[in-house]
Amino acid sequence: MLHPISMTAQGNAIVTDVTVSTLPSAPLWAFEIWNNPDAVATRFAAAAGFALPEMGTSGGSDALRLIRYEPTVWLVEGDASALPSILDNDGALTAIGGGVTRVLMSGRGWRRLLMEGGVFDAESPAFAVGSSAATIIDHVNIRLLVLSEDACLAYVPLSYAQGILHFWQEAAKALD
């Protein structure tokens, strides 16, 4: 289901464009390691072809992407069928996709929009492509993933999705 919100607002400094769209729902998992993290990381890298991402970063591609948002927990998107065997007895994979709405922000104004009601420096150059963050925006816990300079993916709790979309829609009207 798509809820595109396109807006262009002009202020006294810059012109900001951002489009906010709700992506179709997708399976998501919490990938948690409780034991032998190095061994799991080795098994994972061998199977997936890329290393388990560090804190605040993501790895992989649309086929399988992992985002580390807690010291021992990664959010998994894509084909997770191989992960239980990689974890073996050292961790667990738990489905969480039903409770998350993915919101795509595209256009160069997404950083500015994320500053509205936020506490996180989305405008920092260090928040570069591939970076991730868990933050609060307008009292809602949201996870962010920088897809490109013109796109950011936000993982929003299902119950708050409509509210935060409305918030972004209203905020974008007065973006400068």
Partner: peptide
């Protein structure tokens, strides 16, 4: 503890 705790309030 070798345990995973995941909040699935909204998932289910």
């Amino acid at each position: 503890l070798r345990v995973s705790v995941v909040n699935v309030q909204e998932h289910l």
